[in-house]
């Protein structure tokens, strides 16, 4: 069989004169071209397969490098100390030969700090994202929706360093001053500032995913509710939102995963000291802040200090992966229900 390429090339010939074409379509010609085709198609095919395999290789690379370095870390620091210890002082050593020079690596304050900031972020983004999704999906005219939706999604495209700047140089000082004015002690590296700004960043994650699921709730359910004499908000609250709940939950999970893994905002606006507190006005530190702190500046490889960063990275990877997988499962189940 001739391929399209050859037909294209042969076409002017075909129009003028059938003679040479018969040579193009001869059995011998086919065989030769098939051989050539196989010669270049096989490697190209291989290349395509390799490219797809790179995605797997990346995951494997991430897992292996995190595991390998973490295992070395856990040779020096016990897993239980890391997971349950309450003291995080990775660089207390004054002299290398000092006893206890390796510092203490109890990561609980980092976990709670990360949790505190993420919860603040979700408390900010959850209501704002959900209600703006409701407004855009149920109330707004098409015109408003076409303008506002892309504008809100810009928030997701703003580089995180800009949020960091906003949190560290605008929000945090204002909060501190406001606190001073009201007589509340608010740290200039408060969890509140970092968390609230992070919340702004994840608004679009909540709103666009929720918008999608709200829009996919069948119109017949809305009609049924309206035809019973329900108002629009009663319809939304009692029928639309319960039906869309799985999708909204998974939007929140994805937003949470994004908040936990976010780095720049907290590096710039949250503190470095590992305080075990639930006070949003206090300074806390997070997993990502510590990873950056441990790995930037002077470092010696294989010291527990740098290895600890990989152990923290492993925790981060596992937690966000679980959140993502759960979120995707939930949303998939939901899609199956209504498609």
């Amino acid at each position: 069989m001739p391929n399209s390429d050859q037909v294209q090339r042969a076409y002017p010939v075909l129009v003028k004169d059938w003679g040479p074409a018969s040579a193009v379509f001869s059995d011998q010609g086919f065989a030769r071209r098939r051989w050539w085709r196989a010669l270049w198609e096989q490697p190209v095919y291989g290349l395509l397969v390799l490219s797809s395999a790179l995605a797997i290789a990346t995951t494997v690379g991430i897992i292996l490098s995190l595991l390998f370095e973490s295992l070395q870390f856990f040779h020096q620091v016990s897993l239980t100390e890391f997971l349950f210890g309450l003291e995080w002082h990775p660089q207390t050593a004054l002299r290398a030969d000092q006893i206890g020079s390796s510092g203490s690596f109890g990561a609980v304050p980092l976990f709670t700090g990360t949790l505190l900031i993420s919860v603040i972020a979700l408390l900010t983004a959850g209501p704002i994202g959900l209600f703006s999704a409701i407004f855009l999906a149920e109330y707004a005219t098409k015109h408003i929706r076409d303008v506002v939706k892309p504008l809100l999604e810009i928030l997701a495209g703003v580089p995180t360093v800009i949020y960091g700047f906003f949190a560290a140089l605008i929000v945090a000082p204002s909060l501190r001053d406001a606190g001073g004015f009201l007589g509340v002690g608010i740290s200039s590296e408060s969890a509140l500032a970092a968390g609230a700004v992070m919340g702004v960043m994840i608004i679009p994650i909540v709103s666009s995913l929720s918008d999608d699921v709200i829009a996919s709730v069948p119109g017949s359910l809305r009609e049924a509710s309206l035809s019973l004499g329900a108002t629009q908000s009663e319809t939304i609250r009692n029928v639309v939102l319960p039906a869309a709940l799985p999708g909204i939950v998974s939007a929140m999970l994805l937003a949470a995963s994004r908040a936990i893994g976010e780095t720049m905002i907290v590096v710039m606006a949250a503190g470095l000291s590992a305080n075990l507190t639930a006070n949003p006005f206090a300074a806390v530190t997070t997993i990502t802040v510590q990873i950056v702190g441990l790995l930037t500046g002077d470092q010696e490889f294989d010291s527990p200090k740098t290895l600890a960063a990989f152990a923290l990275g492993l925790v981060l990877f596992v937690v966000t992966l679980c959140l993502n997988i759960t979120a995707l499962r939930v949303v998939k189940k939901y899609r199956e229900k209504y498609d």
Binding site: S52, A55, F68, L328
Partner: peptide, 23 residues
């Protein structure tokens, strides 16, 4: 591969930095 790609898209960016450092 497909599940892997969609999960990879949601891995925190700092983890890629750790990969780069180690590898």
């Amino acid at each position: 591969i497909e599940v892997n790609i969609s999960n990879l898209a949601a891995v925190p960016s700092i983890v890629f930095g750790l990969l780069g450092l180690a590898v």
